[in-house]
Design a protein around this nucleic acid. Structure first.
Length: 278
DNA sequence: CGGCCAACCTGTGCGC
DNA sequence: TGCGCACAGGTTGGCC
């Protein structure tokens, strides 16, 4: 379920178990995910101390004490499992593709059924130029992402606003769920051409996108603790969505019979209220 | 270049 | 019970 808020939550969950600790053991259990692993992957990681964990777009960035950065993307089905120090880690299963053993005893497993995820190694000092990161747009929670910025980027775009917001070059980290939710809150139809959102609608949309993401991060943070305590799974907390996955249900606050509709846009489900979103 | 679609891969749930 | 199909939260590469 990894969009920006989930990836942020995973980063925060990993940090206490990895930051300042050394990678004592790295077990790479297959040769590729979406792409092949880099050469000498495990070997280049073992013995390195983790300095910092952070997120950029939907990427997890783990900087190491030799200037390398482990870049991880969870794809559609990737997840991280943590077994805290002192507890017995389960045997890796069929879809546990990488196992990280920390010197303090924590065991972190990367699990990804569909293998749309990826891992790569970059350099801290040139990370901006890394092929996976160099074309990505501004963070939606940062200062660059303003009404003026979004407006400018939507100008002249003939694609639906839904598709434009999913475009990681325009803004980083939004996925199918949070785009649906943000457009619902903003009262903007997902079918509306992006160019017609430039201007006042874009000004309105930007703070709504921020709020949707911040709320989701806050909820992730509050459920995170419990998850690590119980079965160690990170990234699988259930949010309550207004429209996503609610086809046929009345949307919150709708007094009419109009219910949430599901349509398909460029091959992906969009959920929206045709009455409230224009 | 902009925009659309298929493809990557596995699992699950539903209709017949 | 089994089969086939639709669908799943992401991204890319190829085509027009």
């Amino acid at each position: 379920m990894p969009e920006l808020p989930e990836v942020e939550t995973v980063c925060r969950g990993l940090a206490p178990f990895m930051e300042g600790r050394t990678l004592a053991r790295v077990d790479q259990r297959r040769k590729d995910l979406r792409f092949p692993f880099p050469k000498q992957f495990a070997k280049r990681l073992v013995g390195r101390r983790v300095e910092r964990i952070r997120r950029r777009a939907k990427y997890i960035l783990i900087s190491l004490d030799d200037g390398a950065v482990l870049i991880i993307h969870l794809g559609m089905s990737g997840r991280m499992t943590i077994t805290p120090p002192g507890r017995c880690a389960p045997e890796p299963g069929k879809h546990d593709h990488v196992v990280f053993g920390m010197d303090a005893g924590a065991v972190i497993m990367f699990n990804d059924v569909r293998r749309f995820g990826l891992m790569d190694l970059g350099r801290e000092d040139t990370l901006d130029q890394h092929p996976l990161l160099c074309d990505i747009g501004p963070e939606p929670l940062g200062n660059v992402f303003s009404g003026a910025y979004l407006s400018e980027r939507l100008k002249g775009r003939k694609t639906p606003i839904k598709s434009a917001l999913l475009d990681q070059k325009i803004v980083a980290g939004l996925g199918n769920i949070y785009v649906c939710e943000a457009l619902y809150r903003a009262g903007i139809s997902p079918k509306r051409l992006a160019s017609t959102v430039a201007g006042v609608r874009a000004e309105r949309l930007v703070p709504i996108v921020r709020n949707v993401l911040e709320e989701a991060i806050a909820k992730g943070g509050s459920t995170l603790k419990d998850y690590v305590q119980t079965d160690g799974e990170l990234g699988y907390f259930q949010h309550e969505f207004a429209v996503y996955g609610r086809e046929g249900e009345p949307c919150p606050g709708c007094d009419c019979k109009t219910s949430v509709q599901r349509i398909v846009q460029s091959g992906r489900s969009t959920f929206y209220c045709a009455k409230r979103q224009r």
